[in-house]
Nucleic acid binder design. Structure first.
Lengths: 217, 217
DNA sequence: ACCTGAACACCGTTCAAGT
DNA sequence: ACCTGAACACCGTTCAAGT
């Protein structure tokens, strides 16, 4: 049975890294990264599971690709004249918003450390942003670890809590849960970021911390 | 073929929640929680996989049990007269040490948020510790969220990084690196804890923050 | 009461083959 | 060059049966 071109175009998207990852993120957004499988992905692309192995070596590689793709949505553009702490406020907020946009995908499940292939490019972009601002290397290293830990921990907890809240009858909530539940909100996130920024100033003292992204002229 | 009692005792440990979880933690410590399976666990206990379903409803329940069991190793005892910030230093360090002791188990994979059945008891112990010290409830709430995020994020990153370092070729990894890495990690952890404690003092100002665990007399 | 084997509906991945 | 079906060695879980 011959099929014409328009029929093929509807189902048979050209197969390459980009289209595979795009479809994978779509499925992850609907069912979660933990429910993404090669067979499911292949069937959504109207291909056999094995066809995907021409483009990816393993399921892990596909998951890393999905995370990398989501991180391209994060705002890491240099803003001339921006002070280092405003850069931190802007980039961390953007990362959090990206994760909330893809909350159902559970991206944190595949998100390894900063040297992970999926996060490497993102990490380099943000690090060079701060490097260009003139932050001393040892301060940047120490600051990075604390921010990175808080950020990833906060996001995992926040998304888990969001999903749990939807599935819990109000009468069953013990009193101590309020403390935990109230924890994850916009204000909570900002509290943490401000505390860490103040802490970095403490680490760098008596440096006035006037590091800024260079202006054009 | 009749088997005598001593032969049975060697292989056939009595089957209950406790012995199942103990064996599950053993396997997780060797292969990681992600490679623990009901079939593997049952075979290690010389039973069929289905025998375990008399004691646990699902694999998830077993994993939560493993996490809960590991958390009983954490030092959350009340120390009369101890100031709140020293309690934070002590309990967070103990949680980190527990995770490092079970680093290969990847316990964080099953560690949900604080309301997760596996962490519920632990959470209640620590919260009541601080409640008894007289920390105002709103301060405890704000402090908890930041510490919890930093702690879980730091531990995941630290263990991931340790394993990444282990997989480096020996030539790329001089002998002194272990010490430096370990020391740096320790310092980074303490940096974060101290910054957050200072931040909590800022949130509570002008309160002198002299909250302490009650003494006996 | 306690445990079993067989079966179901899935996985990721490898292999040899098809056009 | 690109894709396929069949197979392998696993999963978690359900069912009906055995002692």
């Amino acid at each position: 049975m011959p099929q014409n071109n328009s029929e093929l175009k509807n189902k048979r998207v050209p197969l390459n890294r980009e289209t595979i990852i795009a479809k994978a993120l779509e499925i992850a957004d609907e069912e979660g990264l933990e429910n993404l499988s090669i067979r499911k992905l292949a069937s959504a692309l109207d291909r056999s599971a094995m066809a995907l192995y021409r483009h990816f070596g393993s399921m892990e590689e596909i998951q890393q690709g999905v995370v990398a793709r989501a991180f391209t949505e994060v705002d890491t553009a240099p803003v001339p004249g921006e002070r280092w702490d405003d850069t931190i406020r802007r980039t961390t907020a953007s990362i959090r918003r990206m994760h909330l946009r893809h909350a159902s995908a559970h991206l944190y499940l595949a998100e390894g450390a900063a040297w992970d292939p999926g996060l490497r490019e993102h990490t380099e972009r943000v690090q060079s942003l701060h490097g260009n601002q003139g932050i001393p290397e040892d301060i940047l290293t120490r600051a990075w670890r604390i921010i990175d830990a808080f950020l990833s921990g906060f996001i995992v907890n926040e998304i888990s809590e969001m999903e749990h809240a939807d599935s819990l009858p109000a009468a069953d909530k013990p009193a101590w849960l309020d403390t935990v539940e109230a924890a994850y909100s916009e204000q909570a996130f900002n509290d943490g970021v401000e505390i860490i920024i103040a802490g970095i100033r403490g680490l760098a003292a008596p440096d006035p911390c006037e590091w800024r992204t260079p202006t054009e002229d």
